[in-house]
């Protein structure tokens, strides 16, 4: 019984975090066709910047976090405007340039903060018991932020005019131009949103996992897995697959061994690619 509760609670927390990381990744792919290998770097920037704003600028945790997320969004938009836009149609170029940015930020963090993990201050100290399972407030907060931001993003895309213009470009770029939408603006906005969401994940999880210069790899792999399982470009798919991955990893970790959870997403990727290549919610091959 304890195991079930543990899986339910921890699985929900991790699942929501995976969804948060993956929605931005799938969004920019669905809209602009960009496989953004720098997505994990945005997560890393969120963590390091909030650390830097707290320790160097001595800002309180909330302003530090907000500033970190905003700065990362701006970095994302700058990368789109000056790194990707000139060569947007060339997919291999986009892969290489985004990987280059990821490695650049890794080296930059290494140079600025050293190779060792930086403990980032929590938003809130202490633990709480959920049905007998003890969870840190930080993780609960992380879940709250993930769940509400993913919901907000979904509402934004489905309900607002600007959000619908993002969806319109994803569906048919030519048609979008003929109704007066400017795709380049939509790409810029989407990249900003995508980077901001990844940064939020980094900000909230940094106190749990600490900040290290190689931390961008893990969310990138998780985002890949979630997006392949959920269906390329599908926001709903990313949410569902993120939650599924959270639960199944926690399952394996608690019931089998804490050494194996990473096997889960690798096996899941292989199974999905073999038996349902378009993913759970994928629509069509591009």
């Amino acid at each position: 019984m304890t195991e079930v509760l543990n899986i339910a609670v921890l699985g929900t927390i991790w699942g929501a975090l995976y969804s948060l990381i993956a929605v931005g990744f799938t969004l920019i792919f669905g809209v602009a066709g960009i496989v953004n290998l720098a997505h994990g770097a945005f997560y890393m920037l969120g963590a390091y910047l909030s650390y830097a704003f707290m320790t160097v600028l001595r800002l309180p945790v909330v302003p530090a976090a907000l500033l970190a997320v905003s700065c990362t969004a701006v970095v994302g938009m700058l990368i789109d405007r000056f790194g990707i836009r000139p060569m947007r149609e060339r997919h291999v170029y986009v892969l290489i340039i985004t990987l280059a940015f990821a490695l650049f930020f890794q080296e930059l963090m290494y140079a600025l903060f050293g190779p060792h993990g930086k403990a980032v201050g929590s938003f809130i100290q202490g633990d709480m018991a959920i049905g007998g399972v003890y969870v840190s407030y930080q993780k609960v907060l992380c879940f709250g932020a993930s769940a509400s931001l993913v919901t907000l993003l979904w509402l934004f895309i489905k309900k607002t005019k600007t959000g619908k213009s993002i969806s319109a470009v994803a569906q048919n770029r030519q048609a979008a131009i003929y109704v007066g939408i400017q795709p380049e603006r939509v790409y810029l906005l989407t990249m900003g949103i995508s980077a901001a969401l990844a940064a939020v994940a980094g900000v909230f999880i940094a106190p749990v996992l600490e900040a290290v210069p190689t931390m961008w790899v893990f969310p990138l792999f998780k985002a890949f897995a979630v997006v392949i399982i959920g269906g390329l470009g599908s926001v709903e798919g990313a949410i569902i697959a993120g939650m599924l991955l959270g639960y199944s990893e926690t399952c394996v970790s608690i019931l089998i061994s804490a050494n194996y959870p990473d096997m889960v997403y690798l096996v899941a990727i292989i199974l999905v690619l073999l038996f349902r290549p378009r993913g759970l919610m994928g629509k069509r091959a591009h």
Binding site: K164, S167, A168, Q171, N172, Q174, A175, Y178, K283
Partner: peptide
């Protein structure tokens, strides 16, 4: 435009 070019998921 030619071929309607609708937003087919809308």
């Amino acid at each position: 435009p030619e071929r309607r070019q609708l937003f087919t998921e809308f």
